[in-house]
Design a protein around this nucleic acid. Structure first.
Lengths: 121, 121
DNA sequence: GAAGCAGAATTACACATGTAATCGACAGGG
DNA sequence: CCCTGTCGATTACATGTGTAATTCTGCTTC
């Protein structure tokens, strides 16, 4: 699966939330703070098509875009990459790091514990 | 803190493991599979200096390079970025994803549980 | 039917990154 | 003293990315 750049990812997010959409619709749904013009969004869409992570169907003269890959799959790949690179593939090392940085609220801890408990049965 | 590109990161890894080192020494320690020439390694070193994430001291005519940022800090920043982008900042969502993908061995689970238990006291 | 508008396609351009080669300075061996 | 190897510094060049503007083409509206 081709790599998706940071900006492109924002477009994918939109389409993972709602699809199919026209280019114009995607543009209105991209987070405000990107400050993108419609032209920029169209560039992103083309590049994502070229990467094969989006598909489209023609609706009259317009395209309706939709994701061609599943969000879970991409997210899994990216997180795997990070865990491999930064933690030698060891998930516990990641969790230890988060713990050391106080990134885990008591609620997070409880939630994770419940998750893990369920896994063991 | 400036962003470190994938390739540059490999150089940082070397120096986080052992520092200070000369450019030549870094080159020999970069993973084989990169297939980098010494020139490439030198480019990386310059760019990392420019980004302020490396420092050096002169030893005669050579530089001895050493990290100017701590590995933990950088790793924390990067993992935070990924968790924010892909999991809405929710660590349990990340763990759930890993679980759903069978990325957690029984040993991992046990290790994480121990970790979390320690946190609560 | 001409003019404009709305889509996608094409082109643009600067900065980042991967991957070097080349340059200019100097140190050490003959 | 000069040659050569070794440094860092500078330059190179293709591809990716952010961020558009421009072009081409066909539908709509006078």
């Amino acid at each position: 699966m081709e790599r998706i750049a940071e900006g492109e990812y924002a477009v994918m997010e939109v389409l993972w939330n709602e699809a199919p959409l026209t280019a114009a619709d995607v543009a209105t749904r991209v987070p405000e703070d990107r400050g993108w013009s419609l032209a920029t969004v169209k560039t992103m869409l083309s590049r994502l098509l070229a990467k094969g992570v989006l598909a489209y169907e023609e609706e009259g003269r317009r395209y309706l875009y939709r994701p061609a890959i599943r969000r879970e799959d991409y997210v899994a790949e990216e997180s795997g990459r990070l865990i491999d690179r930064m933690f030698g593939g060891r998930v516990p090392a990641l969790v230890a790091q988060l713990a050391a940085r106080d990134k885990l609220s008591p609620a997070d801890i409880a939630e994770i514990e419940t998750l893990l408990k369920a896994l063991k049965s």
